[in-house]
Design a protein around this nucleic acid. Structure first.
Length: 720
DNA sequence: CACGGAACTA
DNA sequence: TAGTTCCGTG
């Protein structure tokens, strides 16, 4: 095996799964890039550099040559290769770091999906933590997702609460035997992972033999993960590995070569060495990090990037949690249920967090969070020129991601507690934005707009939100997901998405700004890539919706819709607001003073309120400050419910999409939040309604729903 | 250098 | 589908 030194890099396994590259029998370029990146031998040619996930092609010709060799395309050159890379922009796998030559940045969110297509993110969900995780500039150590035990993985708050029907679909599929996640990607594996297997001659020339021992390639990855945690386990859990035998890797020896590469977005954690504790890879995979991906390199919000300090093992549980958390975050953010359209599979959106756990968690979490937050905050603050942010940090450094692994709440251990959610104040604003017009359309409108320039112009107002500019968006990766056929159920959803689900952008409300101002603006327009940048300049209240002429070009029509979603992911900056977990509060709340306390509760389509409302959450401390908001929400909520009722008939998501869109369109202008409620309708599983705790009683009913949903969820999970 | 359309390929 | 090739544009 390689010595740690050889390979360098610590690339998260989840991101780099040989199995990945769904759909294509051959290695994909991004995969190849990662491969090179993780090998020290090629550090002169290509290496991590700059921002998290950013890499620089130091020797374009050489990279092209290597790529050409790999693909048997002797004529390959950087021009061509770069064209291929540009296609990734649309796919959200990569984006270009503007202003830096030969510099690109990975969007690991996407990669996760690619790697784990079986994970149904609600078809749309692509909300894996964004692109590259922060590099350990030193901060690396701060974040660790150490939880060595699964239980630790996510704090209950995060995961449990989040609705994660995500897996359910998978499970179902598995049951049917329809999906084998890895099946398609298998070939790829062989190429990469089995470099030693002799699968690649080309590579052999350099890659494998390159410097270190040959098996390094596969070995390295494998090594990172603990066998137990390896994705295989996932398969097992979900019904079966796509290619069980195929991956010795997962079972592979632990040749950990984790050598922290400073630039690597995935620094290996200093903590658990490969050997000892290291064996247990931290349950949280980077992917799992709650961090919403922030596009902003320096997102105000501290994302906990699991990447740092973790081995990146990936396991189903983690992923699940991650997803849940993600979903949950929606609730936490107070996003309207509509957001869940995208998560058809998500049954239970409620936050569930056992009170008991809370207490326990609070302690630990606090510590970690703090650390992480602090680290992040400082780090980011520096990098980003966000004085405001930094400033904000002062109140609470970025909230670590909700995904934070939390030792306490072990989801498994806890029955779901719905409705327990303590009220959260939300420091964020929610903006829903309409989907971006098709590129062509845009072109028609505004042709010559230079993308970049547009951005900048748009951002003019960004001055400073309170510090965390975060946006939550749910992207969907159709491409990946669809490829695996995961989405059957969600397909309908997709259509919705494509239709243009509004994207939800969550911005922190500056302290100064009134809490009352909860705005929901549609940001769908924003260009994903652009948006990232945009975020950097996050505008205050209103989303500035710069028109980004974007490049959706490549995308097939179908792709576009997804992309929109993806965009979110890509850009989605902010980690879940501190609110998510009460635990975090201390550190996180962007505006320490006000945190929105919102609790989202899901409401069953039927609207029956039979289930007893969990007494939990609302109890939490409501805040008076937000009253206006509350009222507003309340009002909307009511309205939504009404609407919902009407809508219920059409449980079918599939059917709905159109209608939904229509409604949205109509209502868009006027309603900020209202629209969203309907969204919950989804497949009727549980259209989540949100209620702000502060907003009174309304939530109860929802909570019941949540309960139900939760129960359901748990059942589903069991299946897995 | 970067972008992205278009045609083409495997 | 995932590029590859070519090419015009900025």
């Amino acid at each position: 095996m390689k010595t740690p030194g050889d390979t360098g890099f610590a690339f998260p396994e989840w991101a780099y799964k040989p199995e990945s590259s769904p759909g294509s029998r051959q290695i994909q370029l991004w995969h190849f890039i990662l491969e090179l990146l993780r090998k020290e031998e090629y550090h002169d040619v290509i290496a991590w550099q700059g921002d998290y996930g950013e890499f620089v092609i130091k020797d374009p010709d050489e990279v092209a040559r290597l790529w050409g060799a790999r693909k048997c395309k002797p004529q390959m050159n950087y021009d061509k290769l770069s064209r291929a890379l540009r296609y990734y922009y649309n796919k959200r796998i990569l984006h270009k770091t503007k202003g830096k030559r030969f510099t690109y940045k990975f969007n690991f969110n996407k990669l996760v999906l690619v790697n784990y297509p079986f994970i149904d993110m609600g078809s749309t969900g692509s909300s894996v933590p964004q692109s590259a995780p922060p590099v350990p500039t030193g901060a690396g150590t701060h974040f660790r997702f150490p939880p060595s035990t699964p239980s630790e993985v996510l704090s209950p708050n995060d995961d449990l609460r989040s609705p994660s029907g995500v897996f359910s679909s998978v499970a179902r599929r598995m049951a049917r035997g329809s999906v084998s996640d890895c099946s398609d990607g298998t070939s790829v594996n062989s190429e990469i992972e089995e470099g030693n297997a002799g699968a690649n001659e080309e590579r052999g020339e350099r890659c494998v033999s390159g410097g270190g021992g040959p098996g390094g390639g596969g070995g390295a990855y494998r090594s990172i993960i603990h066998p137990r945690l390896s994705h295989e386990s996932l398969f097992r859990m979900y019904g079966g590995p796509g290619n069980p035998a195929g991956h010795p890797g997962s079972c592979g020896p632990a040749g950990h070569r984790i050598h922290p590469e400073p630039l690597s977005p995935f620094p290996v954690s200093p903590l658990p060495g490969p050997g000892g504790a290291g064996l247990l890879a931290p349950p949280l995979s980077p992917a799992l990090s709650m961090t919403p991906t922030s596009h902003l390199p320096y997102t105000p919000s501290p994302t906990l990037s699991p990447m740092i300090g973790s081995h990146f093992s990936f396991n189903p549980e983690d992923m699940k949690r991650y997803l849940q958390a993600h979903t949950q975050s929606v609730y936490n953010y107070g996003l309207s249920p509509r957001a869940f359209f995208q998560y058809p599979n998500i049954i239970i959106p409620q936050p569930h967090r056992p009170a008991a756990d809370k207490a326990g968690l609070a302690g630990e979490r606090g510590e970690r969070a703090e650390r992480a937050g602090a680290a992040v905050g400082s780090d980011r603050g520096e990098r980003h020129h966000h004085p405001s942010l930094a400033h904000a940090a002062h109140h609470h450094p970025h909230p670590p991601h909700s995904a934070h692994p939390h030792p306490h709440s072990h989801p498994l251990h806890h029955p779901l507690h719905l409705g327990e959610e303590p009220p959260h104040m939300s420091p964020f604003k929610f903006k829903l934005q309409p989907p971006p017009p098709g590129r062509k359309q845009r072109d028609g409108q505004s042709q010559g707009k230079p993308r970049q320039s547009s951005m900048s112009s748009g951002s003019g107002s960004m001055s400073s939100t309170s510090g965390l500019g975060s946006s939550l968006s749910f992207g969907s990766d159709l491409s990946s997901a669809s490829g695996s056929g995961l989405i059957s159920a969600s397909s309908s959803t997709q259509s919705l998405n494509s239709a243009g689900l509004p994207k939800i952008k969550v911005e922190p409300i500056s302290d100064i700004e009134s809490e009352e101002e909860v705005e929901v603006t549609d940001i769908s327009e924003e260009d994903p890539d652009e948006r990232d940048e945009e975020f950097q300049h996050f505008p205050h209240h209103h989303a500035k919706v710069p028109e980004y002429p974007h490049r959706f070009a490549n995308g097939t029509a179908a792709a576009n819709p997804d992309e929109d979603l993806d965009e979110d992911v890509f850009k989605a900056p902010a980690p879940p607001p501190p609110n998510l977990t009460p635990f975090y509060n201390s550190q996180q709340a962007p505006t320490g003073a006000h945190r929105g306390l919102l609790t989202f509760k899901s409401e069953p389509v039927e609207g029956d309120s039979t289930t007893p409302p969990p007494h939990t959450g609302s109890a939490a401390a409501p805040q008076t400050k937000c009253i206006p908001l509350k009222l507003r929400f309340k009002r909307r909520w009511s309205e939504d419910q009404r609407m919902e009722a009407s809508m219920e008939e059409s449980d079918d998501k599939k059917v709905r999409p159109e209608e939904e869109r229509e409604r949205e369109r109509q209502s868009n202008g006027q309603m900020d939040v209202e629209d969203e409620d309907r969204a919950g309708g989804g497949d009727g599983d549980s259209p989540p309604l949100l209620a702000y705790e502060g907003s009174l009683a309304a939530p109860l009913r929802v909570s019941t729903e949540l309960h139900r949903a939760t129960a359901q969820l748990s059942l589903e999970n069991k299946d897995c």
